[in-house]
C-alpha cells in the first residue's frame, strides 16, 4: 500500500469515527469536536495564503469576525440560517478579494502588520455601527427552539461539512496548477513572475480562499453560540492559533493543519480545565515553549514527496 493510500484509508476511518460521535458520546465531547473542526477549518483557511503562498497573514480573526457579524446581522433580521452562512461566505470572500488587491503588494513584515491591524479596524467599525451590530453590547441571534442535544448535533454536522469541504479544497489546490504556482511564488516571487505566473491573480485567489473559509467558520460560530460581541469574534487569538496549528502540523501540507488543530486544542483544553484564571497566561507560555522548541523541519514543507506521489500514481 502506498503512503497516499494509507493516508486515504486513515482519512476514511477518521471521518467515520467523527460521524459516529454524535451517536456515541455526550454533549461535552460533541462540543469539543465541533470546536476542533472549526479551528481545523481556520487553520486550513490560513494555510492557503500562509502555507502554500508563504505570505505571513495575521488576518484570520478579521475574516472570522466579519463572517460572524455578516451572518448574524442578516440572521437577526429573519434570514434563514443556511442563507445567512452563504451571505457570510460571500461577504468574507469579497472583502478578502478587495483587501488582497491592495495589501498583497506588500511583503514580509509590512504585510503581516497590515493584516493584523484589519481585525482591530473591523472591531472599531463594528463597535461604532450600533444600529446594525448592537455595538459593544453584542448581538443576540434568534433562538432555534431546539433542545440542546439536537442543536449540538446540527452544528456538529454543519461544522463537519465545512471542515470536509475545506479539506477537499486544500487537496484540490495542492494538486493543481494553482498550488504549483503558489509554491513558486513562495520560493521566489520575481522568478515566478518571469516564468509566466500571474502572481497578483494567484495571490489574490489564495487570499480570497483564506478569507472565504474563515468567514464561513465565523458564520457557523455565530449561529452556534447564539450571541457574539466584537471583542470575542475579532480576538487576535483567532489569527494566532490557526498559525500555530499549521506550524505544528506542517506548512503547506494537506492534512497538517487539521492534525495541528487537534493537537493544539487538546493542549489548550488541558490548560483551560486546570488554570481558569491564568488561562491566557499559561496559553502564552505554551506558545512560547512551542515556538522555542518547534523543530525547524516543521516549517518547511516537502513538496517533492507530494509531487512524486502524484506522478507515480498517474
Amino acid at each position: 500500500m502506498t503512503k497516499a493510500q494509507t493516508q486515504f484509508l486513515l482519512l476514511i476511518v477518521g471521518a467515520a469515527v467523527l460521524l459516529l460521535l454524535p451517536v456515541m458520546s455526550g454533549n461535552y465531547t460533541l462540543r469539543l469536536a465541533t470546536i476542533m473542526m472549526m479551528y481545523a477549518t481556520l487553520a486550513m483557511a490560513w494555510n492557503f495564503i500562509g502555507g502554500f503562498t508563504g505570505y505571513p497573514s495575521f488576518g484570520i480573526a478579521a475574516f472570522f469576525g466579519l463572517g460572524a457579524y455578516a451572518g448574524a446581522v442578516v440572521q437577526a433580521r429573519g434570514v434563514p440560517v443556511v442563507l445567512a452562512w452563504a451571505f457570510a461566505i460571500v461577504i468574507g470572500s469579497l472583502f478578502a478579494y478587495a483587501l488582497g488587491l491592495i495589501l498583497l503588494r506588500l511583503r514580509g513584515h509590512a504585510f503581516a502588520i497590515a493584516t493584523l491591524v484589519i481585525a482591530e479596524v473591523l472591531r472599531e467599525l463594528t463597535n461604532g455601527m450600533t444600529d446594525l451590530t448592537g455595538g459593544g453590547m453584542g448581538l443576540n441571534l434568534p433562538f432555534f427552539g431546539w433542545g440542546p442535544d439536537a442543536l449540538g448535533r446540527f452544528f456538529f454536522y454543519a461544522m463537519f461539512a465545512l471542515a470536509a469541504i475545506t479539506l477537499a479544497t486544500t487537496y484540490i489546490v495542492a494538486h493543481s496548477r494553482l498550488g504549483f504556482g503558489l509554491n513558486c511564488i513562495k520560493q521566489n516571487e520575481d522568478a515566478a513572475d518571469i516564468v509566466g505566473i500571474n502572481t497578483t491573480r494567484y495571490k489574490i485567489i489564495a487570499f480570497t480562499l483564506s478569507g472565504g473559509f474563515a468567514a464561513a467558520a465565523g458564520g457557523l460560530y455565530a449561529s452556534w453560540t447564539g450571541y457574539i460581541e466584537p471583542s470575542d469574534v475579532y480576538d487576535i487569538l483567532f489569527s494566532i492559533k490557526p498559525i500555530l496549528m499549521v506550524l505544528l502540523g506542517g506548512m503547506g501540507t494537506i492534512f497538517g493543519p487539521a492534525l495541528g488543530a487537534v493537537v493544539f486544542l487538546v493542549l489548550d483544553e488541558i490548560v483551560w480545565r486546570n488554570f481558569l484564571q491564568l488561562h491566557t497566561g499559561i496559553l502564552g507560555l505554551l506558545i512560547v515553549i512551542l515556538i522555542l522548541f518547534l523543530p525547524a523541519g516543521v516549517l518547511s514543507f516537502d513538496w517533492r514527496a507530494l509531487l512524486k506521489k502524484k506522478v507515480s500514481a498517474t
Binding site: G50, P56, H109, A112, I236, L278, G281, L283, I287, V288
Partner: peptide, 27 residues
C-alpha cells in the same frame, strides 16, 4: 533564540509573551 527566523515565528513568540504579561497585569 529565534531572532533570525521568519516573521511568523518571531511575531507569534512575542504574542505568547504578550499573553503572559497581559494575564499577569490583569491579575
Amino acid at each position: 533564540r529565534v531572532v533570525a527566523q521568519s516573521v511568523l515565528v518571531t511575531l507569534i513568540l512575542t504574542f505568547g509573551l504578550e499573553l503572559m504579561m497581559n494575564n499577569a497585569m490583569l491579575v
